[in-house]
């Protein structure tokens, strides 16, 4: 295998993941594209080979269905095939209109698995690999919902809050190493999740989001909002008294 610097994009078949794959390809990374839909990954890999003249391999993985051992095997295989992993971007996620109030158990499990459990297993696995090699950056997508929970997307927001907390813990753990863990709390992004919805603020494009994340992956960024105007908004919402907060409809 080539020792060219490698980036792994998990959730590469659509939205921010696809844009991230394209952005990293233009920056010269050899790519490992991961998502559940092999056919879509093959098309994307072909596109990147033509556009950016980079190597792109596909590795199908369904986060909702993957077992802990399955994820460990996946990380081990990736690490063996591509020792020079320098970037890992985990953009995969799951939202559901039925995730409201006390979400039904099967859906709850699936959302927790896709947004939290599988993601932290991947982060842990790749962080161990990077620690033993030359270091690198792992970026995960959190959400503004993590800091502003509400009656809709209850499980999703708690999973993202858990993910952010886990990332902060790992950041502290790896503070003196070349391993960087980053969490991007994304506001509205123009993806399948937000398409057609009436939004309070404009949605960022997936391309701009990917460009911002890719830029930050070369820095000591730890946790932050994108678009950045969300920071003061979330700050205000997070400090509203309950008497006011409970009247908010968002």
């Amino acid at each position: 295998m080539s020792d060219k610097k490698t980036a792994v994009v998990i959730g590469a078949s659509s939205g921010v993941g696809r844009a991230m794959a394209r952005e990293l390809a233009y920056r010269g990374y050899r790519l490992v594209l991961v998502a559940r839909d092999r056919a879509e990954l093959d098309i994307l890999a072909g596109d990147l080979r033509i556009r950016a003249k980079v190597e792109a391999v596909v590795s199908p993985l369904d986060l909702a269905a993957a077992t802990t051992s399955g994820i460990q095997e996946f990380v081990a295989r990736c690490a063996a095939d591509h020792p020079a992993i320098e970037r890992v971007a985990i953009t995969a996620g799951q939202v559901s209109d039925d995730d409201q109030g006390p979400t039904p158990l099967p859906l709850l499990e699936s959302i927790v698995k896709t947004n939290y459990l599988a993601v932290i297993e991947l982060v842990a696995g790749f962080a161990r690999h990077m620690e033993q090699h030359a270091g690198g950056t792992i970026a995960v997508c959190s959400s503004i919902a993590a800091a502003t929970p509400r009656g809709r997307n209850t499980v999703y927001s708690s999973a993202k809050a858990g993910l952010e907390t886990y990332c902060r813990g790992l950041q502290h753990h790896y503070r003196d190493t070349p391993v960087r863990i980053q969490a991007f709390a994304l506001g509205y992004v123009d993806t399948a999740m937000s398409f057609g919805q009436k939004l309070l603020f404009p949605a960022a494009s997936a391309e701009d989001t990917a460009r911002y994340m890719a830029d930050k992956m070369s820095t000591d960024f730890r946790v932050g909002f994108y678009p950045r105007f969300w920071r003061p908004i979330v700050m205000v919402l997070a400090h509203l008294p309950w008497g006011v907060y409970k009247r908010m409809k968002f």
Binding site: S13, S14, G15, D37, A39, A192, F195, G196
Partner: peptide
């Protein structure tokens, strides 16, 4: 009614 599919299926 408007849809924006992101995969062939």
């Amino acid at each position: 009614v408007c849809m924006r599919p992101d995969r062939y299926t």
